[in-house]
Write a protein that binds this DNA or RNA. Structure first.
Lengths: 229, 229
DNA sequence: TAAGCGGATATTGTATACGATCCCATTCCG
DNA sequence: CGGAATGGGATCGTATACAATATCCGCTTA
């Protein structure tokens, strides 16, 4: 699909983008290690560039770099998972309202195409791609709201959401219904800000509730609990 | 005050921190250029480290790096200034509420010390330091709310706020009254979440209203206007 | 046999060297 | 005299070499 074996030097951002895409689509799982030399060979650049790309993904929260050990796809903790969705709950509903009040016809058309692409991805059994497109839909709304700063934050939150979903999604096969996106699109089409805000709030709660974010005992505590009784 | 002439190698984060502090305290003004070699000499490290530090500050929004031209302290546009305070208005009130509901006595004591330090800075005529401490107060509230993700975002927003204030503050000498911080502290002390949320909302509006964020003509248009008459 | 200890290897961290680009002053030509 | 071309110096971008650190594996020993 995308070029796998580049021969020409590629700027750091291009490498970061491809790695981001791979993580969003769950082709790279949380915990996976990214050796610098390996990435160098794949993209045909020097470690200088690769290190730039890896570091930028660390800032986005997608990678965790451990000193002298390397870069790994982040594994959000339960607490971080909660925080991500709490932050989204603060940012997105108001942003959706603003988007509805500002949306142009071209914006609406673009979102229609977007939802269409999501359907195609689901039908062709590419859940990773569908998930990525679903995230992009949310980003697109921030763009329509003309809130670049919030869009930046949302990009990070959606990245982390993708990791959270990879780790804590309850039923792997039952993917996000895009009904919610359809409904949101209708609100935008009608320039109904209040409705868009409510729908977004509900949509986020919906996703949130489909995650399995209950405390689970790690080895240590479960052993201790077992011995107590 | 802080070490100006380090001889030992300092990690990139330490350099980034010192530069951040200098920018927050307005010792480095928006638009100022940071030549790599110069920073290298000051901290006694190689360009590799300095470039890491500069890049990390670019991600924070404090610096803008122009290809082949260098790193400059960012100059937020009017639009960015508005966006920063809109984003803060979404994040901080709810966070203040959570902080009030969770604050421990130690947290309250720490905030008291914090406000005290702000007063000292104001009295000793160090407005830059006072501004930095004022920003830290807001960060501290996010920490108390135990919202690490939001705290991260807020760190960026407060950094940018500092740049906005450097560019658009109306009266240079009339600095932020810390009455608002006192009132917030009282709410936290009483574990009064609703009050904390309202106070924070008002406080942000207050700062916002003290900025001069009206459209102004840049040099080109003003020249043109001048020639028209 | 399991635990502890080196040493070889792999991998990352940092410094430096080289190449590319830009900036600015000077010069040349109209 | 003014403006475009040009060359040198300064500055940034990238690759590479070397140093520091972690990891793995075999060996020893209780």
């Amino acid at each position: 699909m995308t070029a796998m074996a580049e021969t020409r030097p590629v700027p750091a951002t291009a490498i970061a983008d491809q790695l981001t895409e791979a993580i969003h689509e769950h082709r790279l799982q949380p915990g996976a290690k990214l050796r610098e030399d390996e990435v160098c060979e794949i993209f045909g650049v020097s470690r200088t560039i690769v290190r730039q790309a890896l570091r930028s993904l660390e800032f986005e929260g997608l990678l965790t770099i451990e000193k002298n050990r390397g870069a790994f796809v982040s594994k959000p903790t339960l607490k971080e998972a909660h925080e991500v969705f709490q932050a989204r709950a603060l940012l997105e509903p108001t942003t959706a309202r603003a988007a509805a009040e500002r949306a142009s016809n071209a914006d609406v058309a673009l979102l229609e195409q977007h939802i269409q692409a999501e359907h195609v991805a689901l039908d062709s059994d590419e859940p990773g791609l569908a998930l990525k497109l679903s995230g992009d839909f949310h980003l697109e709304i921030a763009r329509i709201a003309d809130q670049h700063t919030i869009e930046q934050f949302l990009r990070q939150l959606i990245s982390r959401s993708s990791l959270v979903i990879a780790l804590y999604w309850r039923r792997r096969n039952a993917l996000c219904e895009s009904n919610a996106h359809h409904a949101l699109l209708d609100s935008l089409r009608n320039r109904d800000g209040a409705s868009a805000e409510e729908l977004m709030k509900g949509h986020l709660l919906d996703i949130y509730s489909q995650l399995d974010l209950r405390e689970r005992e790690d080895g240590g505590t479960s052993l201790r609990d077992a011995l107590k009784r």
